[in-house]
């Protein structure tokens, strides 16, 4: 089958690539571009670890057609840090022990980013809802919820988006 050329922005860099019909965005990012930060979990849209932002909106890369992001702006966990300076969410996840095995962490970070982008002052219940599409098998969720709330508080005082 004919491949389709697409161009999109990934973490602020312009990317062009050929994708197969039916190829999902997760596969295109991991195998096509080499961005391994979105993880391959269930491949059916239920675990959340492949979460990315497409034009600022949280999406599951494993059930998004790669073709559908042509012309869009895609953000992955690899794009969160500013050079060597971690994003406040990443820093807060570290400081609050929000990762154990770490496999769910990229998806949690993107879900948290999507939340804080639209609501800088979330209540605890908002955080719970925001990560309810992401499965974690190690932490019991508590440290993740705390880390997101603390990152939000930090970002409000520092004024960083």
């Amino acid at each position: 089958m004919a491949k389709t050329p697409i161009a999109f922005s990934l973490n602020g860099m312009e990317r062009s690539m050929f994708v197969d019909p039916g190829q999902n965005l997760l596969d295109a990012l991991r195998r096509g571009v080499g961005d391994l930060s979105p993880k391959y979990g269930c491949a059916q849209g239920t675990c959340g670890t492949c979460s990315v932002l497409v034009d600022g909106k949280l999406q599951l890369a494993c059930i998004t057609l790669a073709e559908a992001v042509a012309g869009s702006s895609v953000t992955t966990t690899a794009g969160l840090a500013d050079g060597s300076e971690l994003h406040p969410l990443q820093r807060s996840f570290m400081d609050n022990f929000a990762a154990q095995c770490g496999y769910c962490t990229p998806g949690m970070l993107m879900a948290a980013k999507a939340l804080l982008d639209r609501n800088p002052s979330p209540q605890r219940q908002d955080v719970v809802e925001a990560i309810s599409g992401n499965l974690c098998r190690c932490t019991g969720y508590e440290p993740i919820i705390d880390a997101i709330l603390k990152a939000a508080a930090f970002m409000r005082t520092r004024g960083r988006p």
């Binding site: 059916q44 239920t46 719970v128 309810s132 499965l135 098998r137």
Partner: peptide, 17 residues
């Protein structure tokens, strides 16, 4: 057969410990 039917407590089902 998948995570839709294999139940686990989510972040909303967590109790204070």
């Amino acid at each position: 057969v998948d995570f839709n039917t294999y139940l686990m407590p989510g972040p909303g089902d967590v109790a204070p410990h």
